[in-house]
């Protein structure tokens, strides 16, 4: 087993374990804090694939901004009083269905397509700089999905502004 295999299994196992910890904690603050190492180790997997730019952005956006926002909201609501709350609740049935669909999709996808081995560098990452490869991809081949994502975000921003305005008016 080479160094890369060791690193891969380390990142993969820790990411899965921390993700499990995140969904099984009773205290929501602990759940959020377990997601932080989880995202970190996923970023590690990106580095192994030769996608350093994605790894840095993963940490910057997910751990640096989104999880801080979650932590802010959860710490503000102070949900710590609800210790011993059941993990399963009314939405469990619905969740099970969604998980089942997702799992079937993943299994079908895994069986029908061929993946490069875990350590083959992503195409384009080797000869171009990573950042250039990502930028070129976003603004040429994947322009439409990229613009679509921006549109969704724009709608979300409008929604947030409308909600905030309404509250202030009342």
């Amino acid at each position: 087993m080479g160094l890369q295999d060791v690193l891969f299994y380390y990142f993969a196992i820790v990411a899965v374990v921390t993700a499990l910890m995140a969904i099984t904690r009773h205290n929501p603050v602990h759940s959020v804090l377990f997601l932080v190492p989880c995202f970190f180790h996923i970023a590690g997997l990106f580095v192994l694939l030769g996608a350093e730019f994605l790894a840095a952005i993963q940490i910057l956006v997910y751990t640096g901004a989104i999880m801080v926002l979650y932590l802010f909201v959860i710490a503000l609501l102070n949900l710590t009083g609800v210790r011993g709350r059941r993990i399963a609740h009314r939405q469990s049935f619905l969740a099970a269905i969604v998980v089942l669909i997702l799992m079937v999709q993943l299994v079908v996808l895994g069986l029908t397509s061929t993946f490069p081995g875990p350590f083959e560098k992503l195409a384009g990452a080797s000869f171009l700089g990573n950042t250039e490869a990502v930028g070129a991809g976003i603004y040429t081949t994947f322009l439409f999905p990229f613009e679509l994502a921006s549109l969704v975000l724009l709608v979300a921003i409008f929604g947030a502004v409308v909600l905030a305005k309404k509250e202030a008016g009342e």
Partner: peptide, 25 residues
């Protein structure tokens, strides 16, 4: 000297806030 140096610095320095929030909570 990594080729994403400045993004790395932004990413890592944004983690310091966890210390403050964790301490506060």
């Amino acid at each position: 000297d990594i080729n994403i140096g400045i993004v790395y610095v932004l990413a890592v320095s944004s983690l310091g806030v966890y210390g403050l929030v964790m301490a506060g909570w």
